[in-house]
Design a binder for these strands. Structure first.
Ligand SMILES: [Mn+2]
Ligand SMILES: [Mn+2]
Ligand SMILES: [Mn+2]
Ligand SMILES: [Mn+2]
Lengths: 218, 218
DNA sequence: TTTATTTTTTAGATTTATCTAAATTTATTT
DNA sequence: AAATAAATTTAGATAAATCTAAAAAATAAA
């Protein structure tokens, strides 16, 4: 099949092809994978030979259907494993990513499908990211963040846009987890600091923090 | 850390160092890993540089404490994952090995230890092979096989010495699983075919089959 | 529309794990 | 003990993934 490296390239291209309509650029991929642009060019050629991507010199790269399918299955694996680690093995939501990065490459359809059954068909991972089903379909949250809310608006936390351990730990420390109800009490005009109510407590939260919290308005 | 390849070499050396007191020979390792003797020599030198094995030219190789510790942790991972696949994900005992070969290399102490807790500290894997604990200790069955039993002796199946899919499927088809009680009715002198009782049925079993069934006498 | 800057590709080198074929050492027979 | 066979190591080659430095193309600025 494909090497871990190839799979990681496909995943990276998939991640950024949802964000632009153009081909994903060499530098973006290099940055995402902590490698050099020249290495990316080499690998892209290889993936192109395998008909997993469409590549035109200097024009970036897009996934073929075949490539997209593989990328989606890696993402599916990754997110299912994250659910497993949190729900069954007592991992915290800031501890799962690195292990899932490895588990996602275990290539067994039976494993993935049975894991999905075992976890009772979860729709979202511990960070609120949607889990593609067997056919690659997935729902996704509207892109509304806490920072989009105005005074007196209410919402429920459904995801995070930033996955760093420090951010996740911070949210946990103030009891701001997925499912938490939030009401906006005040927005400081100067720096957009928000005062919000959660679990009957009032706290202040920076713009940096609020703009990375995905919210469903209620 | 170590590459998958290095870990597989350590595991192979561990497997055969329990079977001889001498160093494990180059050819045995090459055979176990489906590679060439010259490749083994190369890798052994690398492992020796890393102080994971002790190597003397032409004299075979033995594990250092450090190497043994790694080998044991890979075996521990492998067998815990096999239990997981059978007990939680509905895999049959002939389907788990290849997937476990990949899962065993996921390197996270927390993952392994939590998996062990989740599975409630299993002592043996689905094939009856012992699972090392966190410190590398494990019990193991006495090396008595069905073929060692004489007429009218009884025993209980506790493991298999042969792990091929065809053998495991065969055993399952005749309901000869771990935990099954066996009584020997007759042993044909000519070819050691046995007639045995299991679950109130009488069946014949070849020497080839009986010598690979590990038994605890009762 | 030149010039300068950024992005991307190419050329060539390196590292890792592998292989084949030949040389060397050890073990087994005569 | 010499000859033969088997096991092991060495030498040299190859393929994959990476890197640095230089060349080429595309973009942005003057
Ligand atoms: Mn993740
Ligand atoms: Mn996630
Ligand atoms: Mn196994
Ligand atoms: Mn097993």
């Amino acid at each position: 099949m494909n090497t871990f490296t190839e799979e990681n390239y496909l995943k990276a291209i998939f991640k950024y092809s949802t964000k632009t309509k153009e081909g994903v650029s060499t530098n973006v991929i290099a940055d995402e994978l902590n490698t050099k642009a020249s290495s990316v060019t080499d690998m892209i050629k290889k993936l192109s030979d395998k008909k997993l991507v469409i590549y035109k010199k200097y024009k970036g790269v897009t996934l073929t259907e075949k490539g997209k399918k593989i990328a989606l299955s890696i993402v599916r694996n990754h997110r299912l494993w994250e659910v497993f680690l949190v729900e069954k093995l007592n991992f915290k939501w800031d501890e799962v990513h690195d292990v899932a990065e490895e588990l996602e490459h275990i290539n067994s359809e039976k494993l993935t499908d049975q894991l999905e059954i075992f976890l009772d068909y979860p729709k979202y991972d511990p960070h609120g990211d949607p889990i593609p089903d067997k056919n690659g379909n997935f729902s996704h949250h509207k892109d509304v963040t806490l920072s989009d809310l105005s005074c007196n608006e209410k919402g429920i936390v459904v995801g995070v846009k930033e996955h760093s351990s420090s951010y996740l730990k911070y949210l946990e420390s103030i009891d701001l987890l997925l499912g938490t109800e939030i009401k906006v009490n005040e927005v400081i005009e100067f720096d957009h600091t928000m005062n919000i109510s959660i679990n009957k407590k009032n706290i202040n939260i920076s713009h940096q923090a609020s703009k990375n919290l995905i919210i469903k308005k209620t």
